[in-house]
Design a protein around this nucleic acid. Structure first.
Lengths: 338, 338
DNA sequence: GCGAGTTATGTAACCGGTTACGGTTTGCCG
DNA sequence: CGGCAAACCGTAACCGGTTACATAACTCGC
C-alpha cells in the first residue's frame, strides 16, 4: 500500500540509507557506481522522497504560507498568480488559507501553518495590528501585505492608496469637476480608509465640499449610491468610488437613469479590473501580481538570509485616465445634477 | 530561537510527553487536573504543535494538493475560491502549485507534494492521460478536473463542454443564423476540442457549412478572427467563440469596424466571465467554483473512506442568452457579411 | 488489609528522512 | 609490502510528534 521509503531503496540497492540519501541529494562523497545503483533502485521502486519527513529533519519545508482575506475576482487571482510565479521559480510551494474576515479563524489558520511552512505572507487589512501580532507564531518570518501598521521585524509591502486617490481626485479637479462625491469602502478596511483620506485631502486643498456615501466594495453599493445621488438635491458632477466594482454599479445606474457619463456626471474607480477597460472607466491601477511576487521574493530572501534589511516597501499606483472622466464641457460651474 | 516543542511543555507541566499529547488532543484518559496543568503550560510557552511532525506520525497531513494549469483571471480565482471554501470547512489546507503547460515541470510539482498532502486535485486539460498517470504518485488518492480520459481509480469531474456548445449553436440556429463561424481554442486543449465538437455536431445536424478559425483563448485571437472574417468573402452571420475572451475581442473589432452586433453578425462566447454581462454577450455559464468545491468534497470523502464509489461526475453548463445573439431580423437568408 | 479491576501515567518505538561520527576500503608512497 | 591519508560507507541519533505497552496508583468489595 504505502509508497516506497528510503529504506526500501537502500535494501534494493544493497547499501545503507545514508548512502541513498547522499546519492539522491547529489552529495559528492559517493562513488559513481554506488550512485548509479541507488538511482536505478529508486527508479525501479518509483521512489519519491517524503517531503514531510525531509522537512522535519532539515527544519526546512520549502513552502510558504499565504493567508488572504476574502478577495474578489481578479484581485485574488492576480495576487496568487504573482506569488506562485515567484515561488515556483525559486522552488517553493504555496500553502493557501483564506481567512474569512474573522480573527479567531485567522488565528487557527495561522497556527495550522506551524511546521509546514518556513514563512508567512499575510494580508489582513481588516484585522487590528495587536490581534495580528498575537496570532502569528513569533518565530515564523513573515511579510505583511497591505496591513495596518508595521509589525516589528516583519517587512510590510503596501501600495499607496492615499496617493492613488489623491491623483485621481486631482485629475477630476483639473478636468473641471467641483462637486465630487466619494463612495467609500467597508468600515474598518484599511485600503478603503486610505482612499477616503486621499479624497478628503484633495477636497480640503481646493476648498471643495466633501461628501461621502457609505459602500462595501460591491457593485450593489455603487448602484445604491447612484440612486442616492439622483434622488438628492445636492449638486454632484463627479463620483469617485473606492473601487471599480462600485464605480461600475454606479455608472450603470446613472446611465440607465438617463444621466450621461461623463457629460452630466463623471465616474472614476480604483483597482483597474479588466472590466474597467471595456467600460472606459477611469481608474487607478495597482499591480497586485507584481506586489505578490515581490512579497514572495522578499520573504524567501529573508528565509535564506539574503535580505537583512527589514524595510517596508510602498508601491505607487498609476492613474489610468479613460473616457468616464473626460474634461468637463458644460459651463465652469453650471448645474450638474440638482 | 526555535519554538517550544511538546517536550518543553511536558517538562514545564511536570508530566510525560504522552500526557501532553493526550491532554491537548482531547483524549479522555487524562485526569482533569493534569489536563489543566498541561494546557496552562502550553499557553505559557505559546506552544503550537508542529504540523509536519504530527502528520509524519499520523500519516495524515490534512492538506490537499492542487495542481492547476495557467488559468486566466476569474477562472482561476473562482476555482480556488470554491476549493478553499470546502477545504477550510472540513479542516483541510490547500497546497497550491501551478503547472506551466510543461509536463516535466508538472511531474516535479506532483512529486513535491508527496508527504505533504493526503490527496491531489489535478486539472490538466492539456496533458496526455498516460503522461499524467505516470506522473501522479500512484498511492495518492486524487480527483481529476476536466482532464482527458478517466484514469483508473481516480474520479473525474468535468463539465459537459460539448453539450454547452451544442446548446449555444442550437440557440443561434433557432434565432435564424445560418453561417456560423467557430473560433477554436488552443490545439490540444480538451475543453476547446469538445466545444468544437459540439459546434460541428450542430452544423452537421442542420446541414450547415462549418468553418473554424484558429484561436488560443486570448482576446487577440478573437480580434484576429474578426479581421479574418471581415476580410474574407465568405458569408458569415454569427460567430461562436470557444471562450468569452475571444468573443469579446471579436465583438470589439467587429463593432470598431462598423459591423453591427448582432444586426450584421451575432457573437457568442463560453464561460460567462463577469465581463460578459456588461457587454451583453451571450455565453455558456460554467459554475467553476461549485465544481472546485465539489471536487474537494469528493476527495475528502475518498480520503476519509466515506465515498467508495469512484464515479465521475459531469456538470452541465447553462445557456445564458443576452443581446449579442438577438433573433436575426434581416431576411432569412439575406446577405450578412460578404 | 488484600487482591482484582480500573484508570492515569510513563517509557520507548516509530513515522521517513538527514547527518555526525567512526570504521572500512582504497590508493599511493616509500 | 607496510603504513597513512583520503575516499567511501554504515550505524545510530535526531527532528517533533503519536501511541502500544508496561507500570503505577487508586477504588472497591470482602
Amino acid at each position: 500500500m504505502g509508497e516506497a521509503t528510503i529504506r526500501d531503496v537502500a535494501r534494493r540497492a544493497e547499501v545503507s540509507v545514508a548512502s541513498v540519501s547522499r546519492a539522491l541529494n547529489g552529495l559528492d562523497n559517493v562513488r559513481a557506481e554506488t550512485r548509479e545503483r541507488v538511482i536505478k533502485a529508486a527508479n525501479e521502486l518509483g521512489y519519491v522522497p517524503h517531503a514531510g519527513a525531509r522537512s522535519l529533519s532539515l527544519a526546512r519545508a520549502h513552502a510558504i504560507g499565504v493567508v488572504l482575506p476574502d478577495l474578489h475576482g481578479e484581485f485574488f487571482s492576480e495576487c496568487v498568480r504573482g506569488m506562485d510565479r515567484e515561488a515556483s521559480r525559486r522552488g517553493y510551494l504555496l500553502l493557501l488559507s483564506n481567512m474569512h474576515d474573522d480573527s479567531d479563524q485567522a488565528a487557527v489558520a495561522l497556527r495550522a501553518m506551524r511546521g509546514r511552512v518556513d514563512g508567512l505572507l499575510v494580508m489582513a487589512p481588516h484585522i487590528a495590528p495587536e490581534t495580528l501580532e498575537h496570532a502569528i507564531p513569533p518565530a515564523l518570518p513573515s511579510v505583511m501585505l497591505n496591513s495596518h501598521a508595521d509589525l516589528p521585524g516583519r517587512p510590510a509591502l503596501r501600495f499607496d492608496n492615499r496617493a492613488g486617490a489623491e491623483a485621481m481626485v486631482e485629475h477630476l479637479v483639473a478636468n473641471g469637476y467641483r462637486h465630487i462625491v466619494h463612495i467609500a469602502g467597508p468600515e474598518g478596511n484599511l485600503d478603503a480608509a486610505q482612499r477616503a483620506e486621499g479624497y478628503l485631502a484633495v477636497c480640503a486643498r481646493h476648498a471643495l465640499p466633501p461628501r461621502i456615501l457609505a459602500g462595501d466594495f460591491n457593485e450593489e453599493a455603487g448602484e445604491a449610491a447612484a440612486r442616492t445621488i439622483l434622488a438628492s438635491n445636492t449638486l454632484t458632477d463627479a463620483v469617485f468610488a473606492a473601487n471599480d466594482m462600485m464605480a461600475i454599479g454606479c455608472l450603470h445606474t446613472l446611465r440607465s437613469a438617463g444621466t450621461g457619463v461623463p457629460e452630466k456626471i463623471a465616474v472614476a474607480g480604483f483597482d483597474d479590473v479588466p472590466l474597467a477597460r471595456y467600460l472606459s472607466l477611469s481608474t487607478v491601477r495597482v499591480n497586485i501580481a507584481e506586489m505578490g511576487a515581490r512579497a514572495v521574493g522578499r520573504l524567501i530572501d529573508l528565509l535564506e538570509g539574503k535580505d537583512l534589511s527589514r524595510d517596508s516597501e510602498t508601491f505607487t499606483p498609476e492613474l489610468v485616465v479613460r473616457a468616464t472622466t473626460a474634461p468637463r464641457t458644460a459651463p465652469k460651474d453650471g448645474a450638474a445634477h440638482a
